[in-house]
Nucleic acid binder design. Structure first.
Lengths: 228, 228
DNA sequence: CCAAAAGTGTTTGCTCTACACCCATGG
DNA sequence: CCATGGGTGTAGAGCAAACACTTTTGG
């Protein structure tokens, strides 16, 4: 039951966002270099305070936009971290989100109050992170991999139109394994979440048909049950 | 990035807990009748403020213990709700948990600051709920059903020792469908999460072997991937 | 000996997986 | 015409689903 009174000390509330993208054929996360203590000069997840008049998702969206200039992205709440010792300055509870942004988007940082440095890091080569952000990022990667296996979230990392080979590469990069071309194509098409366009992309070799995400599709398949 | 300063107004932070149990052959949730405005005399989820020196899980555990006298239970973070309008008195962000407690435990409410009334409600016959608690409860039911299908969480609703028929009934009640006895037994035993004891339970008909949960077992099976 | 619930295997169909060759274009 | 990546089908194996009778106890 939500309580009757409010005369308690309150933790500070922030959002932190794990922003993934594909760059240079690998999965990368956006990090910000801290400009002040504690953890000065260490890398950390982008994030900030939740304002009093916005939802948590709006706060995450806003912070992401401030860091990347990007509004359109897949955004999902991940977990809320509330260990009293996670921030040495005092009690800070953070709602973590993860976001997927399209591979071809160039981020530009809009001038914020903090002029800290931002950079993309391949998830296999992450620097030491401030606070409990390493734990958050590890969990985000696990959730992304898992989600990829039973939902069709992979498109979110690609431009609006893409070839089936590009989509397969995306899956292979994130899952870290080779996939069979024919099985991949059959299953992804049977799932009905993408549809062919009338365009093709020419390059070396035979031109490839371009596909797009079907916004009306049910992106999440029902996993076959294991129990009982 | 977690911010540098703290001179912002802060939302209040609470935990709310959806406590499930099995009673009278159906899945029920514990609700508390509110004793004051807003939503006076309406039913609501048990919950309360997060204290400055406890983790979120500790807060949920403590609130649950205050409501049910029960410390031992399965407890999992569900989602964090932060709509600015969700509480008419001001900004309250709540971290929702769901808990499973054993069927045979009689709850006793320990004297708290609020002497409100508590009651179990079958999830098919819920009263109107205060705040956004109906949304939280609906999501908790969905998560419980889904989780039951790919993990072995069903034991948490049964006493330490149970028969396979009781376990099957539990699954049937929560999933809302009949299951095949032989397939159920084969799959649940192959999963290796329960083991037979040397005891049997006598009643009408042939006595049934009692099983127990194996605490060393990996309770979560890897779901077969659907994508790609 | 009868009622009531526990316990036990096999067959069938379907789904997943592994696998190799032809096609269309640009240079 | 050749190099490059795009596109296609099938056979075998393994898993899941459907299904009915025997066993053990108490009254």
């Amino acid at each position: 039951m939500t309580p009757y009174t409010y005369d308690y000390p309150r933790p500070a509330l922030t959002v932190d966002i794990v922003i993934f993208t594909l760059r240079d054929n690998c999965l990368q996360a956006l990090l910000i270099k801290r400009g002040s203590e504690p953890y000065k000069d260490m890398w950390a997840l982008p994030g900030g305070f939740v304002r009093m008049d916005e939802t948590l998702e709006e706060a995450a969206c806003r912070e992401m936009q401030e860091e990347t200039g990007l509004k359109q992205a897949y955004l999902e709440q991940l977990y809320t971290y509330g260990n009293p010792q996670r921030d040495p300055r005092g009690r800070v509870v953070t709602v973590a989100y993860f976001a997927l942004i399209q591979a071809d988007v160039d981020i530009r940082r809009e001038g914020g109050t903090d002029v800290s440095q931002a950079g993309w890091f391949p998830i296999g080569y992450l620097p030491p992170l401030a606070f409990d952000h390493a734990e958050i990022l590890t969990y985000a990667i696990r959730r992304l991999r898992y989600k990829l296996e039973y939902s069709a979230v992979g498109f979110q990392l690609l431009p609006d139109q893409f070839t089936l080979s590009e989509l397969q590469f995306t899956y292979e990069i994130i899952l870290g394994e080779k996939l069979d071309k024919r099985n991949f194509r059959r299953r992804i098409l049977e799932a009905g979440v993408i549809e062919p366009t009338s365009d093709v992309r020419s390059g070396e070799g035979r031109p490839a048909r371009l596909y797009r995400y079907r916004p009306d599709a049910i992106a999440e398949a029902k996993a076959r049950r294991l129990f009982p």
